[in-house]
Design a protein around this nucleic acid. Sequence first.
DNA 1: TGTATGACAATAG
DNA 2: CCTATTGCCATAC
Length: 103
Amino acid sequence: MAPVTPQEYVEEVLRLVESIPQGRVMSYGAVADALADRSGRNSPRQVGTIMARHGGGVPWHRVVNSSGRTPPGHEQEARQRLLSEGVPLKGDRVDMARAAWMP
DNA sequence: TGTATGACAATAG
DNA sequence: CCTATTGCCATAC
């Protein structure tokens, strides 16, 4: 598929994260997958790195790992935001079966 | 050019 | 539920 520059890829990731509806979440792998057919890339690790560096301006708490775990260092921050949005939680994890979203 | 690292994922024990 | 292992791939050094 059409290969994009790293910066374009970053923009694509941020755009997609912003499009996640309130009360729903996406895993890093799901984000990578969704962009794979338009960016030519597919790497959850790359998505994680992008979020860590440029995720400040988007609803980063709506992106969790495949286990529904919130990002390291922001667990309690994310937990509260997710709760107030109505995301189904199991303890400190997101209930992926119910909250997972796909564009 | 080679190695280490990381907001990941799947599998095994 | 936990750690360990392997695969992954862009970045940094």
